[in-house]
């Protein structure tokens, strides 16, 4: 069953056509990535889904405002709130009583390795831990689809690799229906069931690639199949930026 479908979605901002006839879908329990060059309009899709941007053209089905939990590029943790109060923000907005919200968060703390940090302020946490907190804040909202906007993009290379490996394990255990936006080919191949490749602006889907590689994929030698998919994606992307030799 598809939890999300975009049909012929186009967006023009001012004079710039940003999205041009986007079609994509995400099935229940599926991990789908949107891969595209920087500035292609990947985040615009998320702004449509979260309601920050009104839908101009086309249709989004299986969606209400309440279908998505959104994790922004930077963690967007509130620096004046302790971690526990950051984690309950989404439930607080939903009107869940504080005690119940905290209880719900507490159930997930251990899985996210945050059990010792609840009374810390965000500034006291490392980049990786902050990102985990941001992810927990997203998951705990209990929405059907998780929207992750380059969640590991702001991290240093080492932390990013650690986070991706940790995330893969968490995802394998929980199977959240996920739509990930990224421009990191390796990340997309490592985490996704399917990948949509976007063109340059105005963005449309130029390739849809299935990744049939068994999990876990990270933390083990990269197999030839992964290499082949990565190479194919990279070539498609470079075609778009016009930098192919």
């Amino acid at each position: 069953m598809n939890l999300l479908e975009l049909n012929h979605v186009s967006v023009t901002l001012g004079d710039t056509a940003v999205l041009n006839d986007i079609n994509l879908h995400v099935a229940e329990g599926e991990f789908v990535s949107i891969l595209g060059p920087s500035g292609a309009g990947k985040s615009t899709i998320f702004r449509l889904l979260t309601g920050t941007l009104p839908l101009q053209d086309g249709a989004i089905t299986g969606a209400g405002q309440n279908s998505f939990a959104f994790m922004p590029q930077r963690d967007a943790l509130m620096p004046w709130r302790r971690i526990i109060d950051n984690l309950t923000l989404g439930l607080e907005v939903q009107g869940v009583p504080r005690k119940k919200a905290r209880a719900q968060v507490t159930l997930l703390l251990e899985d996210f390795g945050l059990e010792c940090f609840t009374s810390h302020y965000p500034a006291q946490l490392s980049g990786g831990m902050r990102q985990r907190a941001a992810l927990l804040r997203t998951i705990v909202q209990g929405r059907p689809v998780q929207l992750l906007d380059e969640p590991f993009g702001a991290l240093d290379a080492l932390t990013r690799t650690q986070m991706q490996t940790w995330f893969e394990a968490r995802w394998q255990a929980a199977r959240w229906t996920t739509l990930l936006v990224t421009h990191d080919v390796r990340e997309a191949v490592a985490l996704s069931d399917r990948i949509y490749v976007l063109s340059r602006r105005p963005a449309h889907v130029i390739a849809e690639i299935t990744v049939p590689i068994p999990r876990p994929r990270l933390g083990r030698p990269i197999c030839a199949q992964v290499h082949a998919i990565e190479a194919q994606l990279l070539e498609t992307l470079l075609d778009q930026t016009g930098e192919k030799p």
Binding site: R47, T50, Q65, A69, F70, P72
Partner: peptide, 10 residues
């Protein structure tokens, strides 16, 4: 980004 996040939460 915090405002966008909150808006996405409804």
């Amino acid at each position: 980004e915090i405002e966008d996040l909150m808006r996405s939460m409804g």
